[in-house]
Design a binder for these strands. Structure first.
Length: 889
RNA sequence: GCAAGAAUAGCUCAGUUGGUAGAGCAUCUCGUUUACACCGAGGCGGUCGGGGGUUCAAGUCCCUCUUCUUGUACCA
């Protein structure tokens, strides 16, 4: 055992322990184990993504749960993996292809492009995994999965085919969310509504039968007016009812369109007349359906105008076209005014551009097992923490829309549908396709390509990434693993993907495994910056966790983050909190270094005989810590876990206990020293085990260095010892010692205070005289001297203090601080008066409360008793203080 | 609009059946005594967002208002 350096350097230590754990297969989950199973599947991060602070929070919690479960003797599976992240990854690679090769994916062709994506994946796919390892994550890496690996892809196809055969998947022409940048359809969940400052254009359409007479219309999208096929008014709108059935003139391309009546139109909004563009607005589309209106699409997929009849606008970008169309209206004298108007616009989650409502042929899924999934959450078979997310979940479940699962991308699971070549055109243009079309023999749906493949053409689209993710809890496991570890125990994820992922996994779980996929869902907080903003790359406010680990260590980062990880709300990220984690690691390290300086070899605690109050006290607090941790873990209160660990070690162990025992080491009494070392070893070895889930590396390091864990053994694989250390001692005796220790500590605090008031904080020459309250005080004087930093402490029941001797009433009795030549009578009088005033106030307050009959009658007996005890103490103190004050004249 | 959450010390946050408001950081004063200055001792700092109510007693329960966050709906 080598002497430890003065400050803890986590970097090398952490790396070394991770390697040791891996080499010894500590993370391996044995599906044949007879132990109780515990399992978590990781929310798979984007395969080419990099770690951000949200991942750190999320995965630290999972690691803490997994490590704690191992310590409780469970067989633990933490199953890791990554997600192919269709749009995000494809977009990245397209950009790279454009930059590096000056070409596009279409020029390269599907096969060549996919080669580029795979090599990008191979190049960057390991980054986030290595970052998780750096963090200390105890995943079973032998079971690492990827949503596009072979077995997983088979599952995805199988599920598609199965749901198709069930009639739950169909193809149809629908109004979908179209991303003009990624050139693909999106699900409703991938559209983010953003409030915007828009312009509301007021324009006028001339009545065909009455030239010079106009109908006023308001719109935010003049660039789509070429697609107008009608103007709608509310049938109850008295202003316009008479116009229904008349025709107005669309300005360009010029056309006569009818005025129709529809309830959807809001009389209050704008002019009360709504232009109907069924191709470019969801509501207009529905109105169009009701009135059997023609659909005129005036946009290209990329958001540019498709309207050769109006050359001024044709091929313009939609936003340029908006301005241009307004100008054209103005030139024609048809623009009345433009108002500022706040509305919200749907943005593509990935590409961050406004989505375009667009009619297009897509594959849709009717969700399976919705009833079972709803019941599972409502009945509590699946627990949500915080519970309020149940409501959010239910709001969504109650308003389910069919899921648009096809994407016009190449990177992903290609839809396993083939069209007979000679009919491919008809089939692709067909209004709808579903299981009934299989019978005609013109489409083929299967996990394997059709045998006469040359006669078939495969659907080009791929599936939404989430269509693979929703199978994650079971598609990642083989049968033996499932038998042991499914359903999984805990799922830890962010509430932002409750619809994307959590809710859908529950439905898939019921559909394919006939049961819930997980028992508890823990939703983490969202980490925000100090101004309360979401962390984002574009804002540049997202700290790099790797930098933080370089600076504070993985353990420090974990501990610091967990200290502020609440169960409910968002957390504001503050680097100072992380540095507290580093400081704590250093404190721990130095406390262990202090132990090491007093000899090698673990000293066993063989007996509780002859232990001092502060020994018993710290052991009692250790036992209490264990109980507190159980409670905090049971309720997933990680900030409580952290707070208990912090408080016990820093305040109770270091600030109080370690200071108190320094006298044992100075005294020269070897037996006393050995007893103290035994207590230290008991506390440290257990404490390091308790702390391990939060700070896995340093706890292994120190346990090994101090010999608490043998060569080839690990804290992480050691079952936690739950038996109380003080089991052999009666509760009454324990509390007697604890009270004595508490009295000593509080007296130390009082006397330090007294010293400070006389500017003697630094002086160690001060002597004290005590009028003790009990016999046991005598044995505590040496400890007190050490704690206070004083020269001596005498007991003298009959002590008569010289006039003006500073004194304090403490838990061990009246204590005097004789100061030769330093006595200032007036100062001491003033100090005592102040103290008396304070105590008198307390006596009055407690007296008043106890004088209140209703309080005594209604409050719980223990509350009343506590108040009585307090009053007694204050009164006692007051009379002592008054006595001392009287002695000064 | 609807729903959920939040508002406590200068900052970040605790405060679990109502019973004398807490921690860390920051700041100030002292201090390198055999672990640790990534430290120790001590101090300063709060009418718990405003207003009402219930109660002997409210940070905690109820009502209401204000501000913020997050969903969600509508948005021509």
């Amino acid at each position: 055992m080598s002497e430890l350096p003065k400050a803890y350097k986590p970097q090398a230590v952490e790396k070394q322990w991770y390697e040791k754990w891996t080499a010894n297969k500590c993370f391996h989950a044995d599906e044949n184990s007879s132990k109780e199973g515990y399992s978590i599947v990781i929310p798979p991060p984007n395969v080419t993504g990099i770690l951000h602070i949200g991942h750190v929070l999320n995965n630290s919690i999972q690691d803490i749960l997994a490590r704690r479960a191992r310590q409780q003797g469970k067989e633990v599976l933490w199953l890791p993996g990554t997600d192919h992240a269709g749009i995000a990854t494809q977009t990245k690679v397209e950009k790279k292809v454009r930059e590096d090769e000056g070409t596009t994916r279409h020029e390269l062709g599907r096969e060549e492009f996919l080669k580029r994506v795979w090599s990008w994946k191979d190049e960057h796919g390991g980054i986030i995994i290595n970052q998780l390892k750096r963090l200390g994550c105890s995943c079973d890496w032998d079971r690492e999965r990827f949503t596009m690996d072979e077995g997983y892809s088979e599952w995805v196809s199988k599920v598609f085919v199965d749901l198709f055969n069930d009639g739950l998947i169909y193809r149809g022409k629908r109004m979908v969310n179209w991303c003009p940048k990624s050139l693909t359809a999106l699900s409703d969940e991938e559209v983010i509504a953003k409030p915007q400052q828009s312009k509301l254009f007021f324009m006028k359409y001339e009545f065909v039968d009455a030239p010079g007479e106009y109908l006023e219309i308001s719109t935010t999208r003049p660039e789509t007016l070429m697609g107008d096929i009608a103007v709608a008014v509310n049938p109850d709108d008295e202003r316009f009812a008479k116009h229904v059935g008349r025709k107005v003139r669309r300005p360009f391309p010029e056309a006569e369109i009818p005025v129709i009546a529809d309830d959807h139109v809001d009389i209050e909004f704008g002019t009360g007349a709504l232009k109907i563009t069924p191709a470019h607005d969801k509501a207009d589309f529905e109105i169009g359906q009701r009135h059997d209106l023609e659909i005129i699409d005036v946009l290209h997929p990329d958001g540019t105008i498709n309207c050769p009849e109006v050359p001024e606008l044709d091929k313009l970008d939609r936003f340029q076209a908006r301005r241009k169309a307004a100008e054209m209206l103005e030139e024609k004298g048809l623009l009345i005014k433009v108002e500022q108007h706040e509305n919200s616009v749907g943005y593509s989650e990935r590409a961050d551009v406004p989505v375009e409502p667009r009619i297009s042929m897509q594959w849709f899924l009717k969700y399976p097992c919705t009833d079972e999934a709803t019941d599972a959450v409502l009945s509590g078979d699946i627990t949500y923490r915080p519970e309020r997310w149940v409501k959010t979940h239910m709001n969504w479940m109650g308003n389910l829309q069919d899921w648009c699962i096809s994407r016009q991308l190449w990177w992903g699971h290609q839809i396993p549908v083939w069209y007979r070549k000679e009919k491919v055109f008809d089939l692709k243009e067909a209004e709808s396709l579903d299981v009934t079309d299989l019978k005609a023999g013109d489409i083929y749906v299967g996990t394997e390509p059709p045998e006469d493949g040359d006669n078939w053409e495969r659907d080009e689209d791929v599936m939404d990434t989430w269509f693979s993710s929703w199978l994650w809890p079971f598609a990642t496991m083989d049968d033996a693993t499932k038998a042991k570890f499914y359903p999984t125990t805990d799922l830890v994820t962010g509430p932002d993907i409750i619809f994307f992922w959590v809710a859908r996994m529950i439905m898939a779980g019921f559909k394919y495994e006939n049961q819930i996929p997980f028992k508890n869902v823990f939703f983490t907080s969202i980490v925000r910056d100090s101004k309360g903003r979401k962390m984002s790359k574009s804002l540049g406010n997202s700290p790099d966790p790797i930098d933080l680990m370089d600076k504070f260590g993985a353990d420090g980062l974990r501990f610091g983050l967990m200290r502020i990880a609440p169960t409910g709300t968002d957390i504001r990220y503050d680097e100072d909190t992380i540095s507290e984690g580093r400081n704590f690691a250093n404190k721990l390290y130095n406390a262990c270094r202090f132990r090491q300086m007093h000899g090698t070899g673990v000293v066993a605690l063989e007996s509780l005989e002859k232990l001092d109050p502060h020994h018993i006290d710290i052991l009692a607090k250790l036992d209490q810590l264990s109980l507190n941790l159980d409670k905090a873990y049971d309720s997933y209160r990680f900030n409580d876990v952290t707070a208990h660990l912090y408080e016990f070690f820093w305040t109770e162990y270091c600030d109080k206990f370690l200071e108190a025992i320094k006298f044992d080491f100075k005294s020269g009494d070897d037996a006393a020293k050995q007893r103290t070392l035994a207590v230290i070893d008991t506390v440290l070895s257990r404490y390091l085990t308790h702390l391990h889930p939060l700070m896995p590396h340093i706890t292994e390091e120190l346990s090994a260095k101090l010999g608490y864990v043998g060569e080839g053994e690990f804290v992480m694989t050691t079952e936690i010892n739950q038996a109380p250390v003080l089991a052999a001692m009666s509760a009454a005796e324990v509390s007697k010692f604890s009270e004595q220790a508490t009295a000593v500590y509080s007296t130390a605090s009082n006397l330090r205070n007294l010293k400070a008031e006389y500017h003697l904080a630094a002086s160690k020459d001060v002597r004290f005289v005590v009028k003790p309250v009990a016999d046991w005080v005598a044995a505590q004087c040496d400890t007190l001297i050490t704690l206070i930093g004083a020269k001596g402490m005498e007991l003298d029941t009959c002590y008569e203090a010289p006039q003006g001797t500073p004194a304090a009433v403490t838990a061990i009795g009246e204590v005097y601080m004789p100061l030769d030549g330093l006595v200032d009578l007036d100062a001491e009088k003033a100090r005592l008066d102040k103290e008396i005033q304070k105590v008198a106030q307390e006596v009055e307050r407690a007296g008043k409360k106890l004088g209140n009959e209703k309080f005594v009658a209604n409050a719980k007996p223990e509350v009343v008793q506590k108040e009585k005890d307090r009053l007694g103490e204050w009164e006692n103190k007051l009379s002592q203080l008054e006595e001392m004050r009287a002695a000064l004249g």
